[in-house]
Amino acid sequence: MSHGLLAGLMVCGLVLLVASGARLHGWYLLACGFALAAFTALERLAPGDPLAHWAALALVLWAGCRLQFARQLLELRRFAPRLDKAALVLLAALALAALHAAVETRLPSILRVLQALVIASTVILAAGALAVRRRMNWTALLVCAGAVLLLPGISAAHISGWSERPLAPGQVNPAQAAVIAELALLALAAAARLRADRAMEMRAHALMNAPGIDALTGAASRTGFERRGEEWLRDGRQFSLMLIDLNGFAAVSERHGRAASNTVLAAIAQRLREQVRADDLVARLEGDAPGEDGEGSDHSSFAILLVGNPPRQKLAEMAIRIETAGARPVAHEGRLLAGGELSIGIACHPADGDTLAGLLESAGRALQHCKRQRMGPAYAFAGEISGEAARA
């Protein structure tokens, strides 16, 4: 039964490898193959057989392949770099253990070292799964479940006892059962990850093709912003415009790279949407399309169209909430980046302009006035700036 289950899991790994084209599934396929070879040898070879130590080598290779597969599946290098470094140390230790098993014929010592390394790697993977649970829920939960099953099975089993006599046909070994159960759950975790990735690709494709939507942040693009603003102007609606700039945003890209700056932009856009009503519009005015490398752009201007004519006190309170939300740190690849230090210029229709271009100009003057102030709030109203200040 165990041989049939492992062979079936190898087929699952092959299907995942072909369906995704991702090399990480090759590690899963190898893990299943080495586990099958190890259990077959341990059941059929006598303890004193000169080939018996190759069964231990196969187990060491199983441990290394499943650890490499799981760390790539969970993207520990990106989301939990410290745990990933610990996993790399264990991989190096397993490589040394493999060399030891290739030349050492005494099975008990090899299997005891293997047992300790498998327990340590399982703890690392469980911690990594908990660290990335919010990003890949089902995948992380299934990896955790596999660790919960494997850890007691490996810890409780007298693995070195396998070298004393071969396993009897039909004999249930807790470690062997735990290994197979974890491999089955890892296959489900890989399938869940593949499904989530496909769904994300479909959403990104839909955003790329949706008119008036910025693909990077999911906010309205400049085209969508202008369309909504002109529509409200034609309908004679009263509305307000908030023009928002991320101060010092270029330094994020310079220090941490384009991927980090994109993460900050997407986070700020989401926080802006959380502060407005369903009828309001959040737009990214720059970087309507991805750059040549497909990763977006370094522009950082946002705008909010607020339907109605709320009193200035309400607009000021909203600006303060937006500033507070934008200042929260942004998580990226297991570390926290400084949030956006926002400056906000506010213009109202029709008091500060009767065209969208006029409102943008008024809000832009208020924004620049706000950025020039060393003290005071992070927002400014176009109607409260004197003509001399506006000209300056």
Rank of each mutant, 00 (worst) to 15 (best):
G4R: 10
L9P: 07
M10P: 00
C12W: 09
C12L: 10
G26D: 08
Y28M: 12
L30R: 13
C32T: 14
A35P: 10
A37Y: 02
A41V: 01
E43C: 11
E43S: 15
G48R: 07
L51Y: 07
H53I: 00
W54C: 00
A56N: 13
A56T: 06
A58I: 00
L61K: 14
R66E: 15
A70W: 04
A70M: 03
Q72I: 00
L74A: 11
L74Q: 12
L74N: 11
K85R: 15
K85N: 10
V89R: 15
L94D: 07
L94W: 03
L94C: 04
A95N: 05
A97C: 14
A98H: 10
H100P: 00
A101R: 00
S109L: 11
R112M: 09
A120V: 06
L125Y: 10
L130F: 11
W138E: 15
V143W: 08
L149I: 04
H158L: 12
H158I: 06
G161D: 08
G161A: 14
G161R: 06
A168D: 09
P169K: 08
P169W: 08
N173C: 15
I180S: 11
I180K: 09
A184P: 01
A184Q: 11
L186A: 12
D197Y: 00
A199P: 01
M200E: 15
H205Y: 00
A215F: 04
T217D: 09
A220H: 14
R222F: 01
T223D: 14
E226Y: 05
G229L: 02
R234W: 09
R237I: 05
Q238N: 05
S240W: 07
S240H: 08
L241C: 12
M242S: 01
F249N: 01
A250G: 05
S253E: 07
R255L: 14
R255S: 14
A260Y: 01
T263P: 01
T263Q: 15
I268Y: 05
A269D: 09
R273W: 03
A289W: 02
P290Y: 05
G296T: 07
Q313P: 01
Q313N: 05
E317A: 13
A325E: 09
R328Y: 00
P329Y: 10
V330K: 12
E333C: 13
G339R: 01
G345R: 04
I346C: 03
H349L: 14
A351S: 13
T355I: 11
G364F: 01
Q368W: 04
Q368A: 06
R372T: 10
Q373W: 09
Q373I: 02
E384D: 15
R391G: 03
A392Q: 13
